[in-house]
Design a protein around this nucleic acid. Structure first.
Lengths: 254, 254
DNA sequence: TAGTGGTCTAGACCACTGA
DNA sequence: CAGTGGTCTAGACCACTAG
C-alpha cells in the first residue's frame, strides 16, 4: 500500500478509497494485522480524516475490518457461519443449540410482541434472555417471549429470575408439540444493552432474526435475536459452513 | 416535534437525537410525510448538520426513513416481507417466483464462485441476471451461476445474450432433480451496478443471500442475490407476512 | 501518559430534483 | 431556477486502551 495519490475520478473519493483499500487488504495484509492509524492513512491518501473514515466504515460494514477505540484498526477474519433455521422443527433450547440462558423475567412485552403472541398488551409473559457464543466471541443476544399458557406445568414464580428459571421455562416449553417455525431476517441497529452484550457500540449494525414457534395452531413463543452483522453469516437450511467469500458481500464490480 | 433542546446526557448526541426523532416519527408523522430539511432540523436541535445526519443515517438503516437527493427526507413505510427460502425444494425460476430474467452471459465467474461450484477458475459458466420487483419497487438483484454441466440439453450458444437465453437456461435447469437448497444471509454493501439496479447509491446496505442448489451430490447452481436492506424483511420458512414491527429492528431499550 | 478511534463543529461546494 | 440531500474539509475535543 504505497503512498498512493488518488487520481481524479467521477465517483466519490470515499468510494474509490474503499476500493483501493479493499484491494490492498487482499494483497498486502493478513488477518489480524493492524493498519496504520486513521490520521496517517488520511494524510497518505491526501484526504480529510472524515473521508478516510467513511471508507473504513464501508469496509467494516462488509466485515473486512475491525476497529476498536484505543487500539486500532485490524483486518477482520472471514465471517463465521452461524446456523439459524436448522430446517428441523425444534424448540429453542434443544441440545444442539449454542445458547446460554442468562435470565428470565415475567413482564409485559413490547406491544408488537404482544400482538404477535395474541396476548393482551399488558399481559405479562416469560421473557428469557439468552446469549450465543461462537469461537469465544459473542455473536448474538436473544429475547424469547413465552406466554404462560405455553408452559402450563411451570412451577410457581418463587424461583429467582436467574439462569435456573430460564432453563426451567425452556424445559417446560419443550414438553409441547412444535408444529412449525417461521424465521424472518432484517437489518437493525444494536440498542444500548444489546450493544454491550455484543461488545459493540450503540448503533452497530445487527441482523435481527425473528422466529415464531407455532404449536396447536397458536404462536407458542416468539424469539427476537440480534446477531452481529459484522462477524456473522447466517445459514438457513441443513448445512453450516460453505465458504462463499470475497468477493462476496460487496457485490460485483465496484 | 417542538423546538426541542438537547439536554446534556452522557450518551452521544447523535444517538440521543436518533431516539428523539424516532419517537417523533411514531407519534407525530405518518408514512410518506416529508420532514423538515436537514439544515432546519439541525438548527432546531442546536447541532451541526453532520451530527443530525448521523442520526438520520441510523434511522434510515433501521428502515424508518427514506432520503432522496434533491427531494427530501420522508417517513418510510414498514418493511415488506419477502419470501426467500420457501422451504420447498424448488429450482430458481419456478412459477411462484417474482423474478424477472434480464440477461445471460457465458463467462468465467469470480474465483470464490468457481470454487463453490467445483469448476475450474477460468471455466466459463452461464451467468443469469435477474431482478425482483415487489409492490412496484425493485427489491433485489441476482446473479445465478449455472455450470454448463447442469444444463446438458441447452441449445448451442447461438442465441442472443438477452432474457430469452436466460429463460432457456432456467427452463433447462429445472429438468434435473433438485435435492437440497442451502441459504446464507449476510450484510453487504451495494456495488455500483447493483446500486443502480436497486435505485440506491453505491455503498447502500444490502442483505446478500447466497443459495446453493444441490443435485446429484453436486452443486448444480449458485445464486447470489442482493436485497435492499432498508426496505426488505426476508422471510424463511412457509409463510410470508408476519408483522413484528416497531419496535422491532432497533432492539430493546435504546 | 501517549496513542487510538469516536464524536462534533462550521463551514464549503456538488449533484440532483422538480417547479 | 431554488432547494434538497451528498460529499468533503480542517480543525477540536473526548473516551478508551495499553504500556
Amino acid at each position: 500500500m504505497g503512498t498512493t495519490q488518488l487520481e481524479s475520478v467521477p465517483e466519490p473519493k470515499y468510494w474509490h478509497l474503499r476500493t483501493v483499500l479493499s484491494e490492498a487488504l487482499d494483497s498486502e495484509f493478513s488477518v489480524g494485522e493492524i493498519l496504520p492509524n486513521e490520521r496517517d492513512l488520511a494524510a497518505r491518501f491526501g484526504v480529510a480524516r472524515a473521508t478516510l473514515r467513511q471508507a473504513l466504515e464501508q469496509l467494516e460494514l462488509e466485515g473486512r475490518l475491525q476497529r476498536r477505540r484505543g487500539v486500532g484498526t485490524t483486518v477482520a477474519p472471514p465471517r463465521v457461519g452461524v446456523a439459524v433455521g436448522s430446517g428441523q422443527q425444534v424448540w429453542p433450547g434443544a441440545d444442539d443449540e449454542a445458547w446460554e440462558a442468562a435470565g428470565c423475567d415475567l413482564a409485559a412485552p413490547p406491544a408488537a410482541v404482544a400482538d404477535a403472541l395474541g396476548t393482551g398488551r399488558d399481559e405479562p409473559v416469560h421473557t428469557v434472555r439468552r446469549s450465543r457464543v461462537t469461537h469465544g466471541q459473542p455473536v448474538a443476544a436473544e429475547l424469547l417471549y413465552v406466554p404462560p399458557a405455553s408452559v402450563p406445568g411451570l412451577p410457581a414464580i418463587d424461583a429467582p429470575a436467574g439462569p435456573a428459571r430460564a432453563r426451567a421455562v425452556l424445559r417446560e416449553l419443550q414438553r409441547g408439540a412444535l408444529e412449525r417455525r417461521e424465521n424472518a431476517v432484517e437489518l437493525g441497529s444494536a440498542g444500548t444493552d444489546d450493544a454491550k452484550e455484543l461488545d459493540r457500540l450503540p448503533g452497530a449494525p445487527v441482523l435481527v432474526v425473528t422466529t415464531r414457534y407455532l404449536a396447536e395452531g397458536r404462536t407458542a413463543a416468539l424469539s427476537v435475536a440480534t446477531y452481529r452483522a459484522d462477524t456473522c453469516r447466517l445459514t438457513f437450511g441443513d448445512q453450516g459452513d460453505v465458504e462463499i467469500h470475497h468477493d462476496g458481500p460487496e457485490t460485483r464490480a465496484s
